[in-house]
Design a protein around this nucleic acid. Sequence first.
DNA 1: ATTATATATGAATGTATGAACATATGAGTA
DNA 2: TACTCATATGTTCATACATTCATATATAAT
Lengths: 129, 129
Amino acid sequence: MDKEITSDSFLDTCLSKCATNEYIQQIKKSLPPDHELIELANFFKVFGEHTRIRILSALYHHELCVCDLVEILGMTQSAVSHQLRVLRTSKIVKYRKEGKNVYYSLDDEHVYKLIDDGLEHVKESMVKK
Amino acid sequence: MDKEITSDSFLDTCLSKCATNEYIQQIKKSLPPDHELIELANFFKVFGEHTRIRILSALYHHELCVCDLVEILGMTQSAVSHQLRVLRTSKIVKYRKEGKNVYYSLDDEHVYKLIDDGLEHVKESMVKK
DNA sequence: ATTATATATGAATGTATGAACATATGAGTA
DNA sequence: TACTCATATGTTCATACATTCATATATAAT
């Protein structure tokens, strides 16, 4: 997305005038299509959960099998497996089978970037307090 | 005939095959502290909701007041205002008051980067289908 | 073939939360 | 002052979802 669509008048008007304001219509049209925004929200939603973000943090540096994750997180195998399914379905992690074990790792570089940016933001906003 | 399978014994066996306990401890220590991961999950959670991501998309290009957003999203003022509070509390948007109006905008560059990376990932994974 | 191990999954349940409705606050205006 | 407009918030309700328990599947070992 490109930043900044400038106008001179849309800011100082409100509801009664905005309803027919061409800039409001322009903004509506400039939004990404709704199915993309739904996908985007679903994508972020997967990161927005404590257990899943812990799994992703653990996988950040290492490929790990399920029982490793169970041990690291201190949770039941079932709980971990259920969350891994969510991560798999969302294409945020990938996996390979090797004998009885299944090894998970982060899917692509977007996942790394998102974690990096998110952590950076969180650390900064913690300092501000 | 009944057999006893304790979860402890299965974990021990798995550990010896997957990773040494020492290695697991090392990974545990390398994880970001839990309060950071909780903050991180909460941060992402805010992006992971349809209405809020639509608000952020609209604010991506323009500072907008509440009634503008109401008009763009086609939702009740109450619903928009409630979600704006969530975004405010999470320091994802900032606001300034001007008379009766309150103007919202994205808080910092991290927010832009996250939306960019997220959208990029979503578009790519849609192409793959 | 039988048993053990590693992982996945279906069902049940309690909790979290988004939206609607009603109402409150607060700033401008007549 | 009273009144309107823009925004915020408390409450209720219905839905979503994370965890637990029980069980299924699949692979390896004996």
